[in-house]
Design a protein around this nucleic acid. Structure first.
Lengths: 330, 330
DNA sequence: GTGAAAGCGCTAACAG
DNA sequence: CTGTTAGCGCTTTCAC
């Protein structure tokens, strides 16, 4: 592949001039600049990224490490990140941690090695990753979940409050035995939603009970089993607060299998909005999270930090809002 | 950040030895190797990726350029790619072209600059991109759509045949005026599905008519408008073949707004399976594409080509299969 | 088995 | 305004 000196030879100038011309530095004779541009074009010249990055000691790439590319919540975040990154001339490397501390550490490792300008992370909660990041000076912002132990810029949503509101809504609709299906213990979003659910129960003077709560992975399958167990036990719940939209699929399947109708038989509110929720009969009530905005904001914070504009770390908590549809009233 | 010579100093050896030790070359005194490893650990040393890439004239990263991270079909492909890439020690850079020739070219450009080992591309159809790729020697494999004009390794699905089967199925269920809602003209998958639909019509001796066909972007919104127009015209279709799952959402919304029930009033088959399709009443019949497998296969082809194992380019066409559910029978 | 030294392609002083 | 030159951090001959 053509190098800068090939271009220099062809244009009859030095490599320095080529570099200046190609990078749009002011001080280049227009005529020479034109010759350089022409030569570069003819040769199909592309600057060698690694060489440039090595020399400049910086890259124009951001890494985004999320737990699941197939989860619409995270892809919406990715969209937000990508739009502002792209706007600012940065590329985005997307990585899947699968919510695994090990894969997460591996990806953080390569991000560090490749000397990315910054990393956006939805942390699994592994202290090791946080440690790793803290030891190096690469700017980081945590999205959706905080980075354990080490303060960093963070963009969260107020899951606890949203869960409380959803629970109060259910209670207000006359459901008296509200259950909760949330994610794995230790995952902050899962724990916060559970806490908010308990807040809601308390505020509406409803009885809480361990038998009304189940945990599962944030996937459809586990949620289906958990919902089935919950609904077939003695004294089953008459409403369910569900941890995310993938789980909602499982819950709805379990309901259908038991010939229970959302709303009429069992009130349902799930976290995450999705385009298909309005197609159901009845449509699904949801807690909509501002995923795109979270991504965009996180990217902006990261870019600011990269350019050294801010010193103090900040935590921004966005609010989610309840969208009431048919599945949460009889 | 610590460099290789910091490590060398601390271990009391040369940088060459550090390099050899860290890369697991056989010929290093075990005792020295241990000292090197210890020093590297203590300093939190990470090899400088750009420097290494520059020196080795190669990188361990693959670029995947798709039109939409929020489209489950493409994320499933990404999953397949990522799993095999990761397995082979490669990282994946994911980029969104938004089905825009311009963004696509831009991303191909950075991929070329960063000297990625190879690129996987779901081409928009822009000849310019194909040209660009062909001029440089970076290995490429096209996924889901062929690269215009320039032969390359390609992984496709037989959209045409699948569309024909779906149409025949609809006709077999007694629908006599089958319509088709497909993607933008020029997008091969959209055109192939339309062609297959026409094949199906012909094979079942059903009348074709321009008034039964509409094009829209592969998104819900446009599809909703198009479906509404189709269904409110004189002599509306009694069944619809729909281009993808996002469009299906729009179509189903249009149907609901018109108080038309899928299956009973209008038969519906849509491309792409999705977890929520079984939650609908009636459940949605779909053409399921082997997206994950496409990604995995494409990645394997690319890896083979990178290691120079193959010379001839190949085109692999996978088949999609019809999943019959309630929306395509009365 | 180990070290010295060259050089990957580029940018940024520094001279002219 | 342009060219010469050094050097980013690493791997890899080439000597020893």
């Amino acid at each position: 592949m053509a190098t800068i000196s090939d271009v220099a030879n062809r244009a009859g100038v030095s490599t320095a001039t080529v570099s200046r011309a190609l990078n749009g530095k002011a001080t280049v004779d227009p005529e020479l600049a034109a010759r350089v541009l022409a030569a570069a074009e003819e040769l199909g010249y592309r600057p060698n990224g690694p060489a440039r990055n090595l020399r400049k000691q910086e890259t124009a790439v951001l890494a985004l490490i999320i737990s699941d590319v197939e989860n619409p919540f995270f892809t919406a975040i990715a969209r937000g990140v990508e739009d502002v990154a792209h706007e600012a001339g940065y590329s985005l490397v997307l990585c899947n941690s699968d919510d695994t501390a090990d894969k997460e550490r591996q990806y953080v490792d390569v991000a560090l090695q490749e000397r990315v300008a910054g990393v956006l992370l939805s942390p699994t909660g592994s202290a090791e990753t946080a440690e790793l990041l803290a030891r190096h000076s690469t700017p980081v912002v945590a999205v959706d979940r905080p980075l354990p132990d080490h303060p960093s810029d963070t963009v969260l949503v107020d899951n606890r409050l949203a869960a409380k509101h959803a629970t109060l809504h259910l209670s207000g609709q006359g459901y008296g035995r509200i259950g909760c299906l949330t994610g794995p213990s230790g995952v902050p979003t899962a724990d916060d939603r559970l806490a908010g659910y308990r807040d809601g129960l308390r505020a509406s003077k409803l009885p809480g009970s361990a038998s009304l709560v189940r945990r599962a992975s944030f996937k459809a399958e586990g949620a289906q089993r958990a919902a089935h167990a919950l609904l077939t036990q003695a004294d089953p719940p008459d409403a369910l607060l569900v941890g995310n939209s993938a789980m909602a699929v499982g819950v709805l399947e379990a309901l259908a299998a038991l010939r229970l109708k959302p709303g009429r038989d069992v009130g349902v509110v799930a976290f995450d909005d999705a385009p298909w929720t309005t197609l159901l009969d009845p449509p699904l009530s949801v807690v909509a999270q501002p995923a795109y905005d979270m991504g965009a904001l996180a990217a902006r914070l990261l870019l600011d930090r990269i350019s050294g504009d801010r010193a103090e770390t900040s935590t921004t908590t966005l609010s989610a809002h309840l969208v009431v549809r048919g599945s949460s009233s009889r």
